[in-house]
Computed example of a mutant assay.
Amino acid sequence: MTRIALWVLIGCLTAAVYASEQIPEHDLSADQIVEKNVAARGGLDAWRKIQTMVWVGHVDSANTPAEELPFALALKRPNMTRFEITVLNRRAVRMFNGKQGWKVSPSATGSGEARPYTMDELRSAHDEQVIDGLLIDHQAKGVDVALEGIEKVDGHEAYRLGVKLPSGVTRHVWVDAQSFLDVKYDRVARGPHGPITVEVKYSDYKDVEGLQIPFTIESGVAAAGKSDKLTIDKVSLNPPLDDGMFTRPASQGWHSSVSINAEPSPSTPPALSRPSP
Rank of each mutant, 00 (worst) to 15 (best):
N261M: 06
N261Y: 08
P264R: 13
D233H: 12
S236L: 07
S256M: 10
I232T: 08
W254S: 12
K234C: 06
E263Y: 14
A250W: 02
D242S: 15
N261D: 11
V235K: 04
T231V: 13
D233S: 15
S251H: 07
A250E: 02
V235D: 00
M245C: 02
P266C: 13
S259G: 12
I232S: 02
P266N: 12
G244C: 02
N261I: 01
W254Q: 09
L237M: 10
N261T: 08
E263M: 13
D242F: 07
K234S: 03
M245P: 03
G253A: 05
W254I: 13
F246V: 03
I260H: 05
K234A: 13
S257A: 15
S236A: 15
P239Y: 06
Q252L: 05
P240V: 14
R248H: 07
G253D: 04
A262L: 15
F246E: 01
R248G: 06
F246C: 02
D243C: 10
T268G: 10
S259I: 04
P266R: 15
T247F: 00
F246H: 05
E263C: 09
P240H: 13
L230S: 03
D243P: 01
V258K: 06
V258T: 07
G253C: 05
W254F: 12
I260S: 03
Q252V: 05
N238W: 08
A262Q: 13
I260T: 02
I232K: 04
P249E: 00
I232R: 02
P264G: 14
N261E: 10
P240G: 10
P239K: 13
N238P: 07
H255A: 11
K234I: 02
G244P: 00
V258E: 03
L241I: 03
L237V: 04
P240M: 14
P264W: 08
L230R: 00
A250L: 10
S265A: 14
Q252P: 07
N261K: 09
D242C: 08
P239H: 10
T231M: 06
K234Y: 09
D242W: 07
A250Q: 11
S257W: 04
K234E: 00
D243F: 07
F246P: 04
I260C: 05
S257T: 13
W254Y: 13
I232Q: 08
A262W: 12
R248V: 01
S259L: 02
T268P: 02
G253P: 07
H255L: 10
T231Q: 08
I260Y: 05
D233Q: 13
M245D: 07
V235Q: 01
S236T: 04
S259F: 04
T247L: 01
S265Y: 07
G244D: 05
